[in-house]
Nucleic acid binder design. Structure first.
Lengths: 224, 224
DNA sequence: CGCGACTTTGAATAGCCTCAAGACATGTGG
DNA sequence: CCACATGTCTTGAGGCTATTCAAAGTCGCG
């Protein structure tokens, strides 16, 4: 839609840090651009996994389906995030689903091309290792949290973390309650109830448009 | 304890695949050896993360503590597994605890040494990427499973998977029920009760010494 | 054999989910 | 610009699973 800047996606991505402009040109020339509408599918489980995806704009969710059909949100991809790295080297097919939440621009690099790039610019593989490491650490935390803490504690944590990462006490929930529920491993009804309780306790204030204002971050972190 | 073969740990590890014997010698010369008794600590959360650990023998558990103090088992390290990679490149401290379950041998490589190795032998970083990828995929599955499936389904899954990976319908649980419980995100009591139910339903048979025999793997997978 | 750790069993409770209905918002077509 | 349709959110009632606490039983090891 908008005119394409030369390095539109490539320069956004941490894994291509430290590369010179002309090297970015090379990379940009081999990527493919796609655009997705909200609700559109970026990929499905069992799809062949042969491309690395870069979110150059918008927002998408990555989720899995459990045996009983319930959805588990694993990641929320934002501008500059990448997906597909996890199995670029080994696994032959995807294990999760990707879906655009808002109008989203994606550029993708084919597996072989990416592997050539890694050989040519070794700093890329170090950067990819860093991305992996962060993701692992985050996922370990998420696993621990959903398995051992109450829904109330998880929600409280999510709110304070989101506020902290935005550096603002008031923010708009980036997800529908339904998606937030699958992220926290609960249901929309429970989220709704817990938020009401937080508000009654004076910990937060809810405003129209999914705006949440945190009034007492310290107390919120103490919720069990 | 036992006499040390030259490449005792190094040759066990997938990330050093494809290296020649003399290259393995080089690596072996820079690793440090440690031995741990059951219950001994390999590392704690908040420890500085500056070494890559290789399990050259034995078994260890890696777990996190939630805010409420409950334990979540993340990985069970077996001979040949590595730990510490997740943050070798960026994070400055550990986020999990490691503890030997049986007498365990570990060799470790200092961060700087390992980074030099990766520069010298680029195949190592590709191998590390593979290990990361597998771990991510496994952890994604675990997250989905604990968040969306019932304890019964998770336990049934665990049993069939363990049996499948050993290629035997009867096997000894590699963990105490207490640890298995934290792995599956539940309590020892619940595990006990569910196993009894499975047995009553004829799906498994329990024998002394934590031996479980699977009688009907198909039905077990259908448990909701 | 005896101690400590682990496991099993029981009873009561609590937290969360399900189902269902109504309120609200959002976006579409007339 | 309004009316309606669709999807999302809230609120309530009820039920169920899994946890908690407690105590007895079993295993393994010195």
């Amino acid at each position: 839609m908008a005119a394409q800047a030369t390095h539109e996606c490539v320069q956004l991505v941490p894994i291509f840090q430290e590369l010179a402009a002309d090297q970015l040109d090379t990379i940009e020339s081999i990527v493919q651009h796609h655009h997705y509408q909200p609700g559109e599918t970026l990929f499905n489980a069992d799809d062949p996994l042969d491309t690395l995806m870069i979110i150059s704009g918008g927002q998408a969710k990555v989720y899995q389906l459990a045996a009983n059909g319930r959805e588990q949100l694993l990641y929320l991809l934002q501008t500059g995030d990448i997906d597909g790295e996890a199995a670029l080297f080994e696994t032959k097919h995807r294990t999760s689903y990707g879906e655009a939440l808002v109008p989203t621009d994606v550029c993708s690099i084919r597996r072989e091309d990416f592997q050539k790039l890694m050989q040519k610019y070794p700093s890329i593989s170090i950067n990819v290792l860093n991305v992996f490491g962060k993701r692992l650490t985050q996922l370990e935390r998420q696993t621990t949290s959903t398995a051992t803490e109450s829904v109330e504690a998880r929600l409280a944590n999510y709110l304070t973390e989101t506020a902290a990462s935005l550096n603002e006490p008031a923010f708009k929930l980036p997800l529908k309650k339904k998606d937030l529920a699958t992220f926290l491993g609960t249901t929309p009804e429970t989220i709704s109830r817990k938020l009401t309780r937080f508000e009654q306790a004076g910990l937060i204030t809810q405003k129209p448009g999914k705006i949440i204002q945190i009034n007492d971050a310290d107390q919120l972190l103490l919720v069990e």
